[in-house]
Simulated assay, not measured.
Amino acid sequence: MNWEVTHKNPKVVAAFTAYKTFVLDIATHYAGSRLIEHLDISSLGDESQLAISDNYPEPVTTIRTIGELRKSFDSGEYSQLCLRQATIQLCTAFEVFFNSISEIYGISDNSLELVQVTYKRISTSPIKLGNKTIKQIRKLHKELSFESALNYDEVLAKITSIIETRNCIVHSAGIVPDAGKLIRLSAYAMHHKIGDQLFIPSNSLDDFLHYMGIHIIGFVKNLP
């Protein structure tokens, strides 16, 4: 993806650069986790210890073992954990960016109205979106009188799906809690049932990263 973006306002450029750096750091971290999964650790005994700090004497230091790590690899739990943590960070980067842009342009959080979108692929009825960042995006386009693909109903529905993935992880321990989230998750082909443990396909993180990134780039290019 071409991350080269110019804008007349240096504050916008700084906000975008911070976003890009954050996202690429997330990608580096996740790539490292995938590398670890593919390393041959067969020569290490299952009882070999992995301390998570050296701040305390051994009896009070949190210890994991190679066997526990190997079991996490084999079950797919490690991969899901890394995908979940990276998704949380991607959404954080996205939200921080739009907080910065709203501040730069003096768009307050007051009177952020619910966003209503139509996306017939997932619902024949209009869908109301209440996420603060989604509301900021629509208000920025309205108040600054410009347009970008990020403001399209389908795009906002899909961005919401990514954010709802994060919300399920953070607010309901990875469980899909209700019908509203089912509908919003399905916009990005995340199909579950109420009460399911959220499952993120291995390629989804790159999809999420590109989808958010591409639309932020288009947003910045059209931003007055």
Rank of each mutant, 00 (worst) to 15 (best):
L140Y: 04
L140N: 02
L140H: 02
L140A: 03
H141C: 02
K142Q: 13
E143R: 07
E143H: 03
L144Y: 08
L144F: 05
S145F: 13
S145D: 13
S145C: 09
S145L: 15
F146K: 05
E147N: 15
E147I: 12
E147D: 15
S148F: 11
A149V: 14
L150V: 11
L150E: 06
N151T: 13
N151E: 12
N151R: 11
N151M: 13
Y152L: 15
Y152D: 15
Y152G: 10
Y152N: 12
Y152E: 15
D153T: 05
D153S: 10
E154W: 13
E154G: 11
V155E: 03
L156H: 05
A157T: 05
A157L: 04
K158P: 02
K158S: 03
I159R: 07
I159V: 10
I159Q: 05
I159G: 00
I159N: 01
T160S: 04
T160D: 10
S161G: 09
S161E: 02
S161N: 01
I162K: 01
I163F: 05
I163R: 06
E164L: 09
E164T: 12
T165N: 04
T165Y: 09
R166G: 01
C168Q: 03
C168M: 08
C168F: 05
I169R: 00
I169W: 00
I169A: 01
I169G: 00
V170L: 09
V170Q: 11
V170G: 02
H171A: 10
S172Y: 12
G174D: 07
G174V: 08
G174A: 10
I175N: 04
I175W: 06
I175Y: 06
I175G: 05
I175F: 06
I175T: 13
V176A: 09
V176H: 00
V176N: 04
P177D: 11
P177M: 08
P177E: 04
D178L: 06
D178H: 09
A179P: 08
A179S: 15
A179H: 14
G180H: 08
K181V: 11
L182K: 04
I183R: 13
R184Q: 12
R184N: 05
R184D: 05
L185I: 01
L185R: 01
L185E: 03
S186T: 01
S186H: 01
S186K: 08
S186W: 05
S186G: 07
S186R: 01
A187D: 05
A187E: 02
A187S: 07
A187F: 02
A187Q: 04
A187H: 00
A189H: 14
M190F: 12
M190V: 12
M190H: 11
M190L: 14
H191C: 06
H191I: 15
H191E: 10
H192C: 07
H192V: 06
K193A: 13
I194W: 10
I194N: 10
I194V: 14
G195M: 11
G195P: 12
D196H: 04
D196C: 03
L198Q: 02
L198H: 04
F199A: 13
F199S: 14
F199N: 12
F199E: 12
I200R: 00
S202H: 13
S202A: 14
N203A: 12
N203R: 07
S204F: 14
S204P: 00
